[in-house]
């Protein structure tokens, strides 16, 4: 049963991009593609041949593979209620975060491998933003670790309890942060607009301009998986492990669904930031998680009121 979180995440990840697209389409009054369209796309890509730029080297070919693998392994850490993930150990979120960094690293150099100005730009933006969002995640995890006195995803989520107004506030802020970190990590609005056709303005999508076939299929699937990563964390964060299993599964899927629909809403009604504003905006995430940390210090009675 230890891999329950992993399996559920995989399942829900397949539908995520579709649901986001459908939400956005519905909100803007269009019919939109079906929920399964991204899956069909991926399947079609899997069958397709590839075209490689003569400028590229082995790096370009292996980057999507490593990227995909890094996300799948990161998903292996996903706990589920009282069940651990396949992999679970103390301070595993450090490994988790650095593993995702490996994926980003190879994608960045993979993009630079094509020698294209567009992809250089995308790679550069990705490098800058993912660098800035790192502290926010670590402070948040530090706060939760401090709150629960546990340091692995599994034990952290199992031991988290909310009982006072302050702790509810912290929970809200933490969820907000998780969602926003997910937006940055996935290069979505307001940081990036993946659905535009303008290669000059994008971050993640412009990095994969030259990818095709199997590689592109992996990249598409990875998008869903990355959402599932954060959706799963939020779900775990919310439901207590004391609930019966079936309720948990239902709630897990429900929270994931809500998360993705929320993303759809956010994307429909918000324009993306001016690029110059992004770093500052990401930095405020760190500031907010700092405030969370301070309030956790109050909860654990290290900072005495009065």
């Amino acid at each position: 049963m230890n891999g329950l979180g992993f399996l559920l995440s995989i399942v829900s990840s397949l539908l995520f991009p579709g649901i986001i697209a459908v939400t956005k389409a519905k909100l803007s009054g269009r019919k939109g593609p079906g929920i399964f369209q991204p899956l069909f796309d991926a399947a079609r890509l899997f069958r397709k041949g590839s075209i490689y730029s003569v400028t590229t080297s082995i790096i370009f070919q292996i980057a999507p593979v490593i990227y995909f693998a890094s996300i799948v392994v990161a998903l292996l850490f996903m706990p589920f209620g009282q069940y651990k993930g396949f992999l679970s150990f103390e301070v595993d979120f450090v490994f988790f975060s650095y593993l995702l960094a490996v994926g980003k690293f190879v994608m960045i150099i993979g993009a630079m491998d094509t020698g294209s100005g567009f992809e250089g730009m995308g790679a550069n933006r990705e490098a800058l933003y993912s660098m800035l969002v790192e502290p926010a995640f670590f402070i948040l995890m530090g706060s939760l670790a401090l709150l629960t006195n546990h340091t692995s995803f599994y034990s952290l989520f199992v031991h988290i309890h909310f009982d006072s107004v302050l702790s509810y506030l912290i929970a809200l802020l933490a969820i907000y942060l998780f969602v926003q970190i997910a937006m940055v990590e996935n290069s979505r609005i307001p940081i990036d607009d993946p659905k535009t056709h303008l290669e000059l303005t994008m971050i993640h999508e412009v990095m994969v301009l030259d990818n095709s076939g199997f590689d592109m299929c992996l990249i598409h699937l990875a998008t869903g998986l990355k959402f599932a990563l954060y959706g799963g964390l939020i779900a775990n964060f919310i439901f207590p492990d004391t609930w019966p299993l079936y309720t948990q599964i239902a709630v897990f899927l429900m929270v994931n669904l809500l998360f993705v629909i929320a993303v759809g809403f956010l994307e429909a009604f918000r324009a993306r930031n001016k690029l110059e504003k992004n770093p500052k905006w990401i930095l405020t995430l760190s500031s907010i998680s700092m405030v969370v940390f301070l309030s956790v210090l109050v909860i654990v009675h290290k900072y005495f009121l009065e």
């Binding site: 006072s164 107004v165 302050l166 500052k280 500031s287 309030s295």
Partner: peptide
């Protein structure tokens, strides 16, 4: 604790102000 929560929200407004 409740008062403190409100204070916390207050400090959040400061952060929002900082990049507005």
């Amino acid at each position: 604790m409740t008062t403190f929560s409100l204070l916390l929200l207050f400090e959040l407004t400061l952060i929002i102000l900082s990049f507005t």
